[in-house]
Simulated assay, not measured.
Amino acid sequence: MHIEFGHDVYSSDDKKLGTVVGLVMDAENQTVRGLVLGEGLFNQDERLVDISAVATSNDERVSLNMTDDAAAALPRFLKEEYIERPREAPDALIMPAAGVGGPIFYDSSVTASGYTDYPGNNSFFDPAPIDPPVVETRSNLDETEVILKKGTDVVGSDGEKVGTVNDIRFDNDGRLAGFVVKAGFLFTHDISIPASAVSEVDDNRVQLNITSEQAKGTS
C-alpha cells in the first residue's frame, strides 16, 4: 500500500472527502496507524482515519471502506496546549527616601496612575514570576503515536539537517520501510532513507542514526 501526501481521499460511494495531509505513526514500533484527512479549502479541518478504513490506495487516490455519511463522524484531530498561570511574587517592598515614613508595600494590582510618586508597572520593582509556566499538551492520539507531515525536518546524528520529508514508504504490513527526503535549497533532489537509518520519530523531526553526509550518500 502506498499513500502519498496530497492524495485525494474518496468514500465508498465515490465522494471526495479531502486530501492526505499527514500519516499517524506509532513511534515505538514504527508502524503506520492511520492517516490525517484534511478538509476545507486550506485543509484547516483535520480528521483521523484508522488504517483499517483504507480500502485501496494507488498513485492517484485513496479510497475508504466507508460512505460519505459515515466519514462525517470521523474524529477530529485535537492537540491543545494549556498553560498554567505562574505564581507571582508577593507585593514588592519599596524603601522610601530618607525622611519619609516606614517601608511601603507596592500593590501590583494598582496601575501606575494610582501611585504617582512610586515606580509604575514597567519598572524593575514589578513582581516577577517565581516559577516558569507549566505547559500541558492534550491530544486524542495515543501516547506513542505521532503525526508526520510533508516538510518535517530530517536530522542526522551529527545534528545537521539533511532535508525534509517528501514521502513515506511502508510495507504491506504497515511497517516503515523508509523516507523520501527532499534535500537542497535552490536545486532540490530526493534522497531515499531506509528505515534502518531511523533512530527516532516525533511530531517535529525524524532523527537518523547516521550523519548527514552518510544520509546524502544513501541515494
Rank of each mutant, 00 (worst) to 15 (best):
D117L: 14
A73K: 15
T218Y: 04
A27S: 15
N29Q: 09
D13G: 04
S113W: 10
N172W: 10
Q207H: 09
K79N: 13
T111Y: 09
D171A: 07
S63N: 09
G120K: 06
V9N: 02
T164I: 15
A92Y: 00
E4R: 15
V134Y: 00
T111H: 03
D131E: 10
F185I: 13
D142Y: 14
V36F: 04
P103F: 12
P96R: 03
E46M: 08
F185G: 03
T218V: 07
G178M: 09
D91G: 13
D91T: 01
A27C: 13
G174R: 04
D117W: 14
P103K: 07
L64H: 06
N65R: 12
E28V: 15
E60I: 15
P194M: 06
I3M: 10
N122M: 13
P96F: 02
N122S: 13
V9R: 07
V24M: 02
A72F: 00
A70Y: 06
L148V: 13
R169S: 11
A92M: 12
E143K: 15
R76C: 07
A53R: 06
V9W: 06
E88P: 04
S199I: 00
G156F: 01
R87T: 11
I130M: 12
G101F: 14
E136M: 14
I210Y: 01
D190R: 10
V155N: 00
S219I: 00
V165G: 08
T188M: 07
G217I: 03
V36I: 15
V21W: 01
D107T: 12
S196A: 04
G151Y: 06
L186V: 07
T116H: 01
